[in-house]
């Protein structure tokens, strides 16, 4: 029987004894089974979806696009949504006249005016919405992005200075409390004969 050295025990062991063990084989089987299950589920469950035909949602989508992109591309996509909102038959609570005015405002590149008109057009529909459950957004109004800091600059400077002081103080303390030796110094130190002997005697001790 072929044998190989075992560094842990210092002896030789049969190669057959260290071939794929039942435990490892079981782990591999479980992993492969999991991967196949995921792959199968992904393939089997992939399905298509449909765009909404609900009028107020289409108007909200137009508002959503305009809230993120007021460039010509953003206006174009928003206009498509407005057109869909005008064409759909499911327009309960939507003021169609205002949607038409919003479309005209978009054509004239009056984005803010179009946003106001669209918000007014769907106000009755969103006011009648039940409390949001499941994946419902619960969105009533769409305000533009808000900066993450109020305008008043004074507290910001105070907080910045305090943060800088913490950063410098913490860095100084971390430097002061650093280990006595770098890894390179430790390597050299452990390579010295006295330390090697100490290490050897320690390793020989059962």
């Amino acid at each position: 029987m072929t044998r190989r050295p075992d560094s842990r025990t210092g002896t030789t062991v049969p190669i057959e004894a260290t071939a794929v063990r039942p435990g490892r084989r079981a782990v591999l089987v479980v992993i492969l089974a999991g991967l196949f299950a995921v792959a199968g589920a992904a393939t089997a469950s992939a399905h298509g979806g449909e765009e909404t035909t609900v009028g107020y949602v289409l108007a909200q989508q137009a508002l959503g696009h305009l809230a993120h992109d007021t460039s010509a591309a953003g206006i174009e996509v928003a206009m498509e949504k407005v057109d869909d909102a005008l064409e759909t038959s499911d327009n309960a609570g939507v003021d169609i006249a205002k949607v038409q005015q919003a479309r005209a405002a978009l054509e004239a590149n009056q984005v803010t005016r179009a946003q106001e008109l669209l918000a007014q057009a769907i106000s009755a529909a969103v006011a009648a919405l039940p409390p949001a459950t499941g994946m419902s957004t619960g969105t009533r109004t769409i305000e533009p992005e808000l900066a993450g800091r109020p305008d008043a600059p004074a507290p910001s400077w105070i907080l910045a200075i305090a943060s800088l002081a913490l950063l410098l103080g913490g860095s100084y303390l971390a430097y002061r409390y650093r280990p006595a030796d770098t890894p390179a110094q430790l390597r050299r130190r452990l390579a010295q004969p006295a330390d090697r002997d100490a290490q050897a005697s320690r390793e020989e001790t059962p």
Binding site: Q60, G64, H68, I142, E143, A160, S163
Partner: peptide, 17 residues
Amino acid sequence: GLLAVTFPPPVGPAPVE
């Protein structure tokens, strides 16, 4: 703290499905 002052995270518009 410095990052929070320098690059405060904005709040985006309410979501639309």
